[in-house]
């Protein structure tokens, strides 16, 4: 059992981080905290990709004589793209939060919803 946990500890960290981020994105009422949650959520997936790329005893994916075992470089490249996507998502999210701040004067979801309620 301990081996089950320790041998694949990077996967456990990824699952833990992902759940932390997921919780923050869903449950936090502050919009900036939600974005931070989303960031953690996406970063956890990066860790997952980097983990699956690792080959036991593998070196850097550079051609070297006599050592054919190397780490798979493709997931790293994929994750570079995903990092760009995550950064753009954060940028768009923060831009929208600035817009919300201008229009409502707050970034607390509860207060915004109260402001949006129809008042007769």
């Amino acid at each position: 059992m301990t081996e089950f946990i320790s041998a694949k500890y990077n996967y456990w960290i990824y699952i833990f981080l992902m759940m932390v981020g997921f919780y923050a994105a869903i449950a936090k009422r502050n919009l900036v905290k939600k974005v931070i949650g989303l960031n953690i959520f996406q970063t956890a997936v990066f860790l997952f990709y980097i983990s699956i790329a690792k080959v036991k005893g593998g070196t850097e994916p550079i051609w070297m004589e006599g050592n054919p075992v190397y780490t798979n470089p493709l997931p790293h490249v994929l994750i570079l793209t995903a990092i760009v996507v995550a950064v753009s998502t954060t940028a768009v999210a923060l831009a929208i939060i600035i817009l919300i701040m201008k229009q409502f004067g707050t970034v607390e979801e509860d207060k915004i919803l109260k402001l949006l309620e129809p008042h007769d």
Partner: peptide, 15 residues
């Protein structure tokens, strides 16, 4: 309301 709708869409869409 559009900004708020867009933000909710962003959170759901990103997930």
């Amino acid at each position: 309301e559009a900004a708020m709708a867009s933000f909710n869409y962003l959170v759901m869409g990103t997930i």
